[in-house]
Amino acid sequence: MYCVDSRFRNGLEIFFINEVKDFDRDIIVMLHGFPDDAFSFEGQIESLKERFNIIAPFMHGVLNDSELNKNRICPRELIHDILHLLKEVNPNGEKRVYLMGHDLGCFLSTAIAQISSHQIKGIVHINGLGLQQFYSRKYNLNQWIKSYYVLLTQVNIFRFFVTKVFPDFFLNLIYKLSYIEKDHDLYQRDRRVFNSIYIYKYLFRKTFSLIGAPTMKVSVPTLFLWGNRDNFLEIPSLVEVEKFYDKAQVRVLPGGHWVHLSAQDKVNRILENWSGFCHE
């Protein structure tokens, strides 16, 4: 079991897995998606912790039983939480920082790379996209079919049924659709992982600010790792990726939406040898 640490920002605690062992090492920030928590990165933490300092934050409300402050689930606050932690572990901005996100964590990775580009040296997207890249699929019928839940989560009664009435049913359904083995620890997550469902409401509103906005390209090396049977997001094409990233690779592996779990060994081997993690 890992050390779960915390820091306060604006009166609320930010909980995170703290694997900072050697302050001379580069840093990886691992950002989980929905419905999930930071423990799902255990395989990647074990694989990389001898080379990097690693922190893996938990979205508010998914770890403890404290009452969820929904305002801290909005994009701006989530981004500032991560920047606050980065200030703690990289106070002078001298260390190389890499961002690894899964699902909604990829939105945070992209946003932070654009805001704090001076310290971010690489990004890994695991079955996830930056918000502007996702918005660019607005005319993609296949993506809308896969992402119908984004619209449903805008409705209060749907969120209530998912989080309060049938949480076990929906968790099992989501994980089953993601080809997670039935004996995997992910099925032991409880309804608290659904607390971050409110982020869909805020992100949907945020997309309206992208109408007519210029494309924001990410300049640092970026690696997309994607399960070939993802039932929630379409596999990004190289043409699409090149619109938003200057230096990016796409690796498609057997698996579903949690490919870092269903193809853990393959994902870890790719990460261990990815050129984006190599020193300049």
Score class of each variant (00 low, 15 high):
residue 42 E to H: 14
residue 62 V to S: 13
residue 82 I to T: 07
residue 71 N to T: 14
residue 39 F to K: 08
residue 96 R to G: 13
residue 44 Q to F: 03
residue 38 A to N: 05
residue 16 F to S: 03
residue 77 E to R: 15
residue 75 P to N: 04
residue 43 G to D: 11
residue 79 I to Q: 07
residue 29 V to E: 08
residue 43 G to F: 03
residue 28 I to P: 08
residue 50 E to S: 14
residue 29 V to G: 06
residue 62 V to I: 14
residue 36 D to Q: 11
residue 39 F to Y: 12
residue 95 K to M: 03
residue 22 D to A: 06
residue 70 K to S: 11
residue 87 K to E: 02
residue 79 I to L: 09
residue 61 G to F: 07
residue 56 A to H: 12
residue 16 F to L: 05
residue 69 N to D: 15
residue 49 K to T: 13
residue 92 N to E: 00
residue 40 S to M: 09
residue 37 D to E: 08
residue 20 V to C: 15
residue 82 I to G: 03
residue 16 F to D: 02
residue 100 M to H: 03
residue 91 P to V: 00
residue 102 H to L: 07
residue 32 H to W: 07
residue 42 E to Y: 07
residue 45 I to Y: 08
residue 38 A to V: 01
residue 85 L to V: 07
residue 98 Y to C: 04
residue 51 R to P: 05
residue 74 C to H: 08
residue 12 L to G: 00
residue 40 S to H: 02
residue 85 L to G: 02
residue 25 R to S: 14
residue 58 F to Q: 09
residue 30 M to N: 10
residue 94 E to A: 01
residue 24 D to Y: 04
residue 54 I to H: 10
residue 20 V to T: 14
residue 59 M to V: 11
residue 94 E to K: 03
residue 87 K to A: 00
residue 20 V to A: 04
residue 43 G to H: 08
residue 35 P to S: 06
residue 63 L to R: 15
residue 35 P to K: 05
residue 38 A to F: 04
residue 15 F to S: 10
residue 58 F to R: 05
residue 22 D to V: 05
residue 64 N to R: 15
residue 70 K to E: 14
residue 87 K to P: 00
residue 47 S to Q: 06
residue 48 L to Y: 05
residue 72 R to Q: 09
residue 39 F to H: 12
residue 77 E to L: 12
residue 31 L to A: 07
residue 94 E to Y: 00
residue 56 A to C: 15
residue 11 G to M: 02
residue 92 N to G: 00
residue 51 R to V: 02
residue 12 L to Y: 05
residue 50 E to M: 04
residue 50 E to G: 10
residue 16 F to R: 02
residue 90 N to I: 01
residue 52 F to S: 12
residue 21 K to W: 11
residue 15 F to K: 13
residue 17 I to F: 10
residue 46 E to F: 02
residue 18 N to C: 09
residue 26 D to F: 05
residue 61 G to T: 12
residue 81 D to W: 09
residue 57 P to K: 11
residue 91 P to M: 00
residue 29 V to W: 04
residue 61 G to C: 10
residue 88 E to A: 01
residue 84 H to L: 01
residue 24 D to P: 01
residue 29 V to K: 04
residue 23 F to H: 11
residue 89 V to I: 12
residue 54 I to F: 11
residue 62 V to M: 06
residue 54 I to A: 13
residue 30 M to R: 09
